[in-house]
């Protein structure tokens, strides 16, 4: 308990620092938010144009597809907001030897790296995601129960951990290979598949995004449970399981990685 309190306190200090840094370039942070907002808008325009040609996409209505799309942006956005610094580990922190700084402090290195940066750009995704959910939900006939609300709320942090876990695993590779930005990128981009109902893909792709790089568990499966109320054990249970397992795996690889870390010679 004391440790958690300390972690929150440290996190708050980092966030305050980060906000000060942002104030240096006032207005600039809006640029990133608009950038991510535009990325979503162009995808939505694409969907909207498609639905002027067909009444449904393999049985999914426009509202359902947009709901799944919106739901996928929430865990993605949360991960982006809080844990964006993992990219920097893969891109340059290890290569330039900057990781020394983290090793010299009495804070867990993984926590330190994550807490250090707050990526405001993520609001471009988060706001779109929440807006799409709010707009589409009333038009979908969803039966609500207390259990469903609880399970839906539980699924979001674990879906976020799927993102963060995959990023931690791939970022850790940099401890051995010096840089792993491209590897993080390759795995991260698989989330493109998660934005749409998994039934539109063939079996191979569906199995990959469910069991191997399980981004479908961050969006389609929890959304499926919310929409249809089917099979909570799989749809939510797998998300919880995959999120915990991937984050644990990431932490283990990270731990061994920091032992293998060699600073840059300068």
């Amino acid at each position: 308990m004391k440790q958690i309190k300390r972690a929150f306190k440290i996190h708050r200090i980092f966030v305050v620092q980060e906000l000060k840094r942002m104030m240096e370039y006032k207005g600039d942070f809006i640029v990133g938010i608009i950038g991510f907002l535009l990325a979503q808008i162009s995808n939505l325009l694409f969907l909207w144009i498609i639905f002027t040609k067909v009444p449904s996409l393999m049985g999914w209505s426009l509202n359902e597809v947009v709901f799944i799309y919106g739901f996928s942006l929430v865990p993605k956005g949360i991960d982006h907001l809080f844990f964006d610094n993992l990219w920097a580990v893969g891109h340059y922190i290890v290569r330039k030897g900057d990781f020394d700084r983290y090793l010299t402090r009495p804070i867990n290195t993984l926590f330190h790296v994550m807490a250090e940066k707050l990526q405001i750009d993520a609001f471009g995704e988060l706001l779109t995601g929440v807006a799409l959910i709010i707009v589409t939900l009333p038009q979908l006939s969803v039966e609500w129960s207390v259990l469903k609300v609880i399970l839906a709320l539980i699924s979001v942090p674990f879906a976020t951990l799927i993102y963060t876990g995959i990023k931690t695993c791939t970022a850790s590779v940099a401890f051995w290979s010096k840089r792993s930005g491209s590897i993080i990128y390759m795995f991260y981009m698989t989330n493109e598949f998660a934005k749409y109902p998994a039934t539109i893909y063939n079996t191979v792709v569906r199995n990959i995004i469910t069991y191997v790089i399980p981004f479908a568990l961050t969006s389609y499966f929890p959304a499926l449970y919310i929409l249809k109320g089917e099979n909570p054990l799989f749809n939510i249970g797998m998300t919880v399981l995959a999120g915990s397992a991937l984050m644990a795996l990431g932490a283990v690889i990270w731990h061994f990685g920091t032992r293998a870390y060699e600073s840059a010679g300068s």
């Binding site: 009444p55 996409l57 393999m58 049985g59 990128y185 390759m186 981009m189 893909y201």
Partner: peptide
């Protein structure tokens, strides 16, 4: 790796269009 990451969205579009044409478009 970057090329492989970028090509993902091509495959997503591929499956979406396949779904569009098979959904009575």
């Amino acid at each position: 790796f970057y090329i492989l990451g970028n090509v993902m969205s091509c495959f997503v579009s591929y499956f979406i269009w396949k779904a569009v044409y098979s959904s009575g478009g």
